[in-house]
């Protein structure tokens, strides 16, 4: 076994380099696990589908990437319905942002996903253009850790409709 000699000045640099990914990992660790709750509309907009839906989010992952599976509102036949969205995100070059590695094309009907880990908040976003109507539907989930679990705010914006919002108190089942 070879010995590695570390100079005093270099030791702090090594510590800093080691701490950077650990901090990023820590930011995501507080969201890890399976969380459940019921979405209650706080601003109905014109999309009642967002109200009283069972909401489940599962987050798992490592330092540079994570997998999110969550209840999402998706466009269908000119309307919308609850569905599951599952995406693997990897860290993007832009600070705080995570991107899917799926080669999706919004203009071929694929959903455009994004994630952002900020101070005390994880944002999961989904934008899709309905192939039937041509209208867009954007669904954004804001996750904020709380003393008892997590609070989620769901924001649904659709072409030609007022924005709808729902709140979910999430607990580990």
């Amino acid at each position: 076994m070879s010995k590695v000699r570390v100079l005093p000045g270099a030791a702090s640099l090594v510590a800093l380099l080691a701490a950077a990914p650990a901090a990023a990992q820590g930011a995501l660790e507080s969201y890890a696990g399976r969380w459940v709750g019921t979405a209650i509309a706080v601003e109905a907009g014109s999309w009642p589908v967002i109200d009283a839906g069972d909401f489940v989010v599962t987050i798992s992952g490592g330092r540079r990437s994570f997998e999110a599976s969550w209840s999402a509102v998706v466009p269908v036949d000119g309307g919308a319905r609850w569905d599951r969205a599952s995406t693997e995100f990897e860290r993007a070059a832009r600070p705080g942002y995570y991107q899917p590695d799926d080669g999706a094309d919004l203009f071929e009907g694929d959903p455009q996903y994004w994630a952002f880990a900020g101070e005390g908040e994880l944002i999961l976003g989904r934008l899709q253009i309905d192939e039937d109507s041509g209208g867009h539907l954007m669904y954004v989930c804001h996750l904020v850790p709380s003393e008892t679990g997590m609070e989620a705010m769901l924001v649904l914006t659709a072409a030609g409709a007022e924005t709808a919002r729902a709140r979910v108190t999430l607990v580990r089942p």
């Binding site: 832009r94 900020g118 976003g125 867009h136 030609g160």
Partner: peptide
């Protein structure tokens, strides 16, 4: 991310942007 759509007599142009603060 920009796109356009025509609905009846209206031409709609959308521009979606993600800001640095999320």
């Amino acid at each position: 991310l920009q796109w356009a759509r025509i609905v009846g007599d209206s031409l709609l142009v959308y521009s979606f942007v993600l800001n640095d603060d999320g």
